[in-house]
Design a protein around this nucleic acid. Structure first.
Lengths: 159, 159
DNA sequence: TTTTAATAGTTGCATATACAACTATTAAAA
DNA sequence: TTTTAATAGTTGTATATGCAACTATTAAAA
């Protein structure tokens, strides 16, 4: 009909030519490869737990609030993640004596040893990811990702 | 000590200057914004369910295998996702008469109406994401993401 | 100082996820 | 044709996730 000249393509959403779905698919692939690599070590470690180990190895003794923020997750989600990790002996929680609300999180000896052992896996995932990606492309993509994050952050904060 | 000239930076993994963590953080932000936008409609829809609605709206009647593949998830994960969506009246499953193993998935009237109503939300997320991103940058990032996916796919398939 | 906020962490509830083991059905091999 | 493979989907079990409501503790306001 003459008053409906829009093509189907314009009405519908084109996932093939949009950044969002490409990002999502890529991250799923990275996550899958990372988890598979971890599974080969038969330690029962999840990718999320490894990231926590890495962050604590960088800076031991963070409290749960800081750890939740830096690992980009909800505090209740972190609580349960840490409960599992504590049960497996990777970390311990210690109540602060200054502020009894706060719990600091520390790597155990086993947790530290495990991270050292698993670190090459993490390195391998990251170098696989950036294989054949030039320094220029790396700068480009990080720059674009920063722009995308800014787009959402400015919208979220304005609410 | 003289035999240990490596700086800490080289031994440790630098998340700030690696593509992986930047990708992960960006996708989390996109997901958060999408879910928040959906919540405003009080339909109890999750972002995963909306993607399924979108895919079925593009091509109704796919079987669960195809739907799992196109939405990038495990078949058992899809089973439970569909169970929830069927319970909420968005979709129905129909056993194939040709091959009794197969179940085709169809949008209900309510499912279709819901997707039409929710589609602007999806569009808004995607245009927010690409706001201020030039066509050149869009081509660049998709190109780099394709390269990253290829890096992992070739490693995974070679196992 | 007493009351009221805000903060840190936990728990209830619901969804999403994936691997492995399972059932049912169909296709391939003997 | 009978046996064996492969395939589609479901279920058990376990982890991860987030919102809302909760407890305990500390900080701010009255």
């Amino acid at each position: 009909m003459y008053f409906c000249t829009m093509s189907k393509k314009e009405i519908n959403i084109d996932f093939e030519n949009s950044i969002g779905p490409w990002l999502g698919k890529t991250v799923k692939l990275v996550d899958y490869f990372l988890q598979e690599s971890l599974n080969e070590h038969n330690l029962g470690l999840t990718k999320e737990q490894v990231i926590v180990l890495k962050r604590l190895h960088d800076q031991d003794g963070m409290n749960q609030n800081e750890l939740a923020f830096i690992t980009l997750r909800n505090k209740s989600s972190l609580t349960r993640l840490l409960t599992n990790m504590e049960g497996n002996g990777y970390i311990i929680r210690k109540k602060s004596v200054v502020d009894k609300r706060i719990k600091h999180v520390y790597l155990t000896k086993y947790g530290k040893e495990t991270f050292i052992k698993i670190r090459p896996v993490l390195k391998n995932v990251m170098s696989t990811l950036e294989q054949d990606v030039t320094e220029q492309e790396k700068a480009q993509i990080i720059n674009i990702l920063k722009k995308i994050q800014h787009n959402f952050n400015s919208k979220i904060e304005s609410i």
